[in-house]
């Protein structure tokens, strides 16, 4: 009889403990609840009650949104065509720093895809002067601002500091005509999409912030992209 009592007590305890464990697992260990501080549904407004006014408002916002999109009505009105005649006018460039890939694409399809190399994210400090550099590819939206054939690289100070060399006093000692390959497309602030002599390292984040592309792929991009083409880096 005493044995049966103990079995009952132990099994009841087991059931209670298992139940408690299930409850803890179900209602804890969940993700934290995060509220949107900057933007949320609460800021979205409704259409006006009057049908005609609502239709006009909808037309207005459609037009405004269309103007924002790459290749939208605002871009279409421009005189210069930023891509070659063989490419759609709404084509843009995307650089995926996460997978080290570069695309020529439109909203609906990828027209061209190639492997590239983007910034390491590494840092360099010049112990002599305290100057500091972060070798990252900038993220955001840009435009192709220049197209160069057979570009020469003007080595900045960090290139010498990184190699443990003295910064040259003669400007001519800064130029390197091999490093950037056959073509370069500038997108501002000294950043370029260019060729490389280290094609084996394509696909890895090894650059100082520029975007390196293999020579055949770079030629295709150079031939099909014009000044003013939108560039998105993420």
């Amino acid at each position: 009889m005493a044995m049966k009592k103990w079995i009952f007590i132990v099994s009841t305890c087991i059931v209670v403990l298992v139940g408690a464990a299930i409850m803890i697992i179900m209602f804890s260990f969940g993700p934290p609840e995060v509220e949107l501080r900057s933007f949320g549904d609460s800021v979205l407004t409704s259409l006006p009650a009057d049908d005609k006014a609502a239709q006009a408002e909808l037309r207005k916002i459609r037009k405004a949104y269309d103007a924002m999109r790459p290749g939208g009505s605002a871009q279409a009105g421009k005189k210069k065509r930023p891509s070659s005649p063989g490419m759609p006018p709404d084509m843009y460039i995307v650089i995926n720093t996460h997978a080290n890939e570069i695309y020529l694409r439109t909203e609906d399809s990828v027209l061209f895809k190639a492997t590239c190399s983007t910034g390491t994210g590494g840092e360099l400090v010049d112990t002599a002067t305290g100057r500091h550099w972060v070798f990252d590819t900038p993220r955001g939206s840009f435009k192709i601002s220049s197209k160069l054939k057979e570009p020469w690289w003007r080595k900045p100070d960090w290139a010498f500091i990184e190699e443990g060399e003295d910064i040259p006093k003669q400007e001519a000692e800064r130029y390197d005509k091999e490093m950037m390959g056959d073509y370069a497309l500038g997108f501002g602030d000294g950043f370029f999409i260019h060729g490389t002599i280290y094609e084996r390292l394509l696909g890895i984040n090894v650059t100082h912030g520029c975007v390196r592309v293999g020579s055949a792929d770079l030629q295709h991009i150079f031939d099909n992209v014009g000044i003013g083409t939108k560039l998105y880096i993420f």
Binding site: S38, F39, D41, V43, L44, T45, S46, L47, D51, A54, Q55, E57, L58, I61, R62, A64, Y65, M68, R139, G140, S141
Partner: peptide, 24 residues
């Protein structure tokens, strides 16, 4: 024929997209 509920949804979506698109 004016489909108000579809229009409301589209209006809210476009507002949301435009706000998100304005950030970097």
């Amino acid at each position: 024929v004016w489909d108000r509920s579809a229009a409301e949804l589209e209006y809210r979506l476009l507002q949301a997209e435009m706000s998100l698109a304005k950030s970097d």
